[in-house]
Design a protein around this nucleic acid. Sequence first.
DNA 1: CAGGATCCCTAATGATACTG
DNA 2: CAGTATCATTAGGGATCCTG
Lengths: 122, 122
Amino acid sequence: MITKKESSTNSLNSKVIIECPVSYTIEMIGGRWKTIILYQLRYEPLRFGQLKKMLPLITEKMLAQQLKQLEIDRLVVRDAKEIIPPHVEYYLSESGKTLLPILTSMAEWGQIHNPFTKDCKV
Amino acid sequence: MITKKESSTNSLNSKVIIECPVSYTIEMIGGRWKTIILYQLRYEPLRFGQLKKMLPLITEKMLAQQLKQLEIDRLVVRDAKEIIPPHVEYYLSESGKTLLPILTSMAEWGQIHNPFTKDCKV
DNA sequence: CAGGATCCCTAATGATACTG
DNA sequence: CAGTATCATTAGGGATCCTG
């Protein structure tokens, strides 16, 4: 079993913080990219290249890195067909789907409170 | 008016990211401490020292810094009585209170999914 | 196509000491 | 009590180049 302690890069106190439910959740979906990646996956599986197009500002490194962490945390499933050229799909796990109400609420809250939100639906 | 661009330390792309509702919300409550601070304030106003006791691992610098950012973002109100010794209370603004459903959902999700959660109710 | 490997910089966080 | 100031550390993120 991979514990958060091993898969995380955080220091000492993360172990204690992480025992608190709210903090645990924010560790799982926090950071600049994870929520938006999860949210993009809300409807259907997406390929690496599709996600990259939907998130034009993300670097390939960050996308790969965040997807890997989401996979380790069992929120996202990586489905790779062993063909040439590679075809890899990502989709929400059952656990990941249970985050959707939270992500939706966050999207609604942002839609209301963000003065900069215009037509961005993400 | 203080825009997020000015109050944030993020670089170029934050401007675009921030226009997305989900990302905007995560910018407001993300990081290691903000959710837990907001969540501690869910019932009643708390003083600086009380928060410090409830979050034994936070440094005074981080607590002051995060509270200041939450105040700038209008999620928390700082109420300081001008007396000696100082008496300062923090409480959720109306806008901050609208985050409570999200924070509660996050706490519930963490309670269910965190294998390390024991009796920590935060 | 879907990444991996490297290098590098800065923002974020921490430790410690000090103060109105 | 409720913070600041200063210094040191680290982790997040980006640029670029490379590959099965």
